[in-house]
């Protein structure tokens, strides 16, 4: 059961400008104990479960696909460390991050969205890949009153404008 507010959310939200990221794509050759061990040692955080985000010293580690996570850090160093268990690609330029802060972020994401961002079970430590204002995005709540929206740079300008309306 999920409780929710009845009214349209009008709580304030601040929308940051799109910022570059340091994301590195890690694709496991196999989701096994060897990968988990090497990944944990290299990244400093466990492999996130499906739909989850874990915190690592260099930044968030985001579950992206069944065998793919997005970590933060130096791509070349990670590639060396994970060479036996995973393919590593620098995708820092492929993502921008827009931060929404304020109690109204859930309602803001329902506008021209498809995902149930008002579900309280979707909170800090979760990630969802969905569409928002026609743009493919990843949503990562970072606090009770904040969410990070990851989007491809080509869509970032339009999405930022739409979120800021």
């Amino acid at each position: 059961m999920i409780r929710r507010e009845t009214a349209i959310v009008t709580d304030p939200v601040t929308v940051s400008d799109p910022q570059p990221t340091r994301l590195v794509r890690v694709e496991a050759f196999a989701l096994d104990a060897a990968f988990a061990a090497v990944f944990g040692a290299a990244v400093g955080a466990p492999v996130p479960a499906v739909g989850k985000v874990t915190d690592a010293p260099a930044g968030p580690v985001i579950w992206a696909e069944p065998k793919v996570v997005l970590a933060s850090g130096d791509a070349a160093a990670l590639a060396r460390a994970l060479a036996e268990v995973a393919a590593v690609s620098d995708v820092a330029g492929a993502w921008r991050r827009i931060d929404l802060k304020g109690p109204g972020w859930r309602g803001r994401l329902m506008i021209d969205g498809l995902f149930d961002a008002e579900d309280p079970a979707f909170g800090t430590g979760c990630v969802a890949a969905t569409m928002l204002h026609h743009a493919p995005v990843m949503l990562c709540p970072t606090a009770d009153d904040a969410v990070a929206v990851y989007v491809a740079p080509s869509f970032a300008g339009d999405l930022h404008a739409a979120l800021s309306r």
Partner: peptide, 12 residues
């Protein structure tokens, strides 16, 4: 044993 990353927007 391979990874296939879409880097269309990583590179200009």
């Amino acid at each position: 044993r391979v990874g296939a990353a879409n880097v269309q927007e990583h590179y200009a």
